[in-house]
Structure formats: C-alpha cells, structure tokens
C-alpha cells in the first residue's frame, strides 16, 4: 500500500486540506474508488476506510493482479467533514457540482480539477455517494443513462438493484457524468445511510466492490468473494413513490429492505401538538421498500417511501 497526497489546499488558519489516496498494485490505472466529497458522507468514508484495510491485506497476500492498480480515496474533502458541513465551508458550494473542474477557477473548481486530473484516466470509477433527502436506501448501483453506461457490468457488483435514470441538467457537473465523458466506466454505489454508520450495508458495499474487482480481473480469482445478489435492473421511474399529504412528525413502521403488501401500514404522521395520527401512509402496491424517509420531521408532499413493485 502506498499513500499519496493527490491534492492539497493551503488555508489561512486551519491545517492544509489534503486529499489522500491509497494505492494498491501497480501498472494500468484500473480502478479508482472514491468515498466522500461532502462533509456528511460519513458512511461513504467508513466503507472506503474498510476497503483500504481489506485491499492492504489482499496486497500483502499477493492477490492484486499484476499490472493492475487500484486507488482508494476515502475522503476528498476533510475540511467539510471536520466542520460537519455537507458543502464547502466558506461558500457552501458542492465539489460534486464542479467537475471536470477548472484549475485557475474558484476554490471548489480547483479542488475538482485537482482531483479529476489524478483520477480521470482510470478504466473504472466507483463513487460511494449520497442522496440529498434524508433517508435509508437498499444498497444499489445507480447509473446515469448517458449512452455510455455499461449496465451488464454493473450487475457484477452483485448488489440487489442496478438503477438507471435519465440525465438532468445539474448532473453534467458531477464526477460520475464526467468520468463517463472521459471514457471511465463509472458507478455510483449507494449503501443505506449517509451521516450515520450502517454496518450491514457497509459490509455489503465492501463485499460488492471486492466481488466486482474479482469479476473484472483486478484481484485474484482465488480470493473468496460473494456479493450475494443477482442484481435486478430497473429505471428509477419504475419505482412507486408514496407521498404524504400532511406534514408533522414521521414515525416509520416499515423500513428500506422490507417487503410490503398492498394496504400495509408504512408510516404514521403525528400532529406535533396533539399527538394524534393525522395520516397513515399505506402501501399502494406489493413490493420491496427501496427508500424510506428517516428524518423525524416531514414536510407535506414528500416522497417518504419508494417501492419497487413486485411485478
């Protein structure tokens, strides 16, 4: 394992910000794995830290295939992590809306440019990322449909689902999109949580990445991996969004990963003053709960649950 600082930013009063990479094997730039770009992506950092540990062991056993290099960057934005701010501390900009970056531009453009320069030539790019709405996901691979996406290869992660969605205007400045433009096969990996650690899905994320690395011939085929699922492929529009009408205190009954029958009680909305139930959120169809709202408060008309219908 080699440690390398791939980007450094000097600051006025704080320690310099460093994006630290861990390299395994050597030769062809095969796979780059990125954890957090935002300050609340603790689960994403954690999963990558565990991957560094696993890959270090594998490298010591000689299990990294010859002429293949894997780079893991657990956290590319420690400055935001240390202040527990999702975005850049001074101007609240999102590094993941700045790619491919601009090396003489503004601060987060420079950071994006500095990172991208170091990671754009990899054959595969894996990013552990997060959703802006507070909630819990079934672990899955998410892909933008740019025309360049390789869906069949995404199934090699062995995650329960591979979800595709159409590109929106704001996606064009994300790392995933720009990786694809630079001909890197890019995959966004979602585990269950963001700001909290979820051990079970973290383990799933680690298993899935190791399984993928084996399937694409980057770690030795003798390494025992089993991601566990034949991925189901779907579009995000295949999911049924269940919205609440009333706002209030949100009390979930069923969570992501659980099965729901049509008519099952998914959650209750409670009046914050009287404690009365103002709304029961009922499953409109039978299926698997893909996403469940996790914030104790809920606004009206929120997609509190997303269900993958059984058929």
């Amino acid at each position: 394992m080699r440690e390398k600082i791939i980007y450094e930013l000097k600051t006025l009063y704080r320690d310099d910000m460093r994006a630290r990479a861990f390299e395994f094997g050597s030769g062809e730039e095969s796979v780059c794995i990125l954890g957090s770009l935002r300050g609340n992506e603790i689960q994403q950092t954690y999963v990558c830290s565990q991957l560094v540990k696993e890959l270090n062991i594998l490298e010591q056993k000689g299990a990294i295939v010859k002429d293949k290099k894997i780079t893991v960057i657990p956290c590319a934005n420690p400055r935001s992590i240390n202040t527990e701010k999702r975005f850049w501390p001074i101007d609240n900009t999102d590094i993941n809306r700045m790619f491919p970056g601009y090396d003489v531009g503004e601060t987060t453009q420079r950071i994006a440019a500095g990172l991208f320069e170091n990671i754009k030539s990899y054959k595969y790019g894996i990013q552990f990322t997060s959703f802006y709405m507070p909630g819990r996901f079934i672990p899955h691979i998410r892909m933008m449909s740019t025309g360049e996406e390789d869906v069949e290869q995404a199934k090699l992660f062995g995650m329960p689902y591979v979800v595709r969605r159409k590109v929106r205007p704001y996606d064009t400045t994300t790392l995933n999109y720009n990786w694809q433009l630079w001909e890197t096969k890019a995959y966004s990996v979602y585990t269950t949580t963001t700001a909290d650690i979820d051990e079970a899905s973290a383990k799933q994320g680690i298993k899935s990445v190791l399984h993928f690395l084996k399937c694409i011939g980057v770690i030795d085929e003798s390494v025992s991996t089993n991601a566990g699922y034949h991925s189901k492929l779907l579009w995000n529009t295949d999911m049924v969004n269940v919205r609440n009408t009333h706002s209030g205190i949100y009390r979930p009954v069923l969570q992501s990963g659980q099965q729901a029958e049509a008519g099952d009680l998914l959650a209750r909305i409670i009046d914050p003053y009287t404690g009365e139930i103002t709304e029961k959120i009922i499953a409109p169809c039978t299926g698997t709960i893909f996403f469940s709202h996790s914030n104790p408060l809920v606004y009206s008309s929120t997609a509190v649950v997303k269900i993958v219908p059984e058929n």
């Binding site: 408060l297 606004y299 009206s300």
Partner: peptide
Amino acid sequence: QADLPCDE
C-alpha cells in the same frame, strides 16, 4: 403553498 411540519 405547502405545509411545514409544525404549525406553519
């Protein structure tokens, strides 16, 4: 308009 969680 839309309702916020607590009386607003």
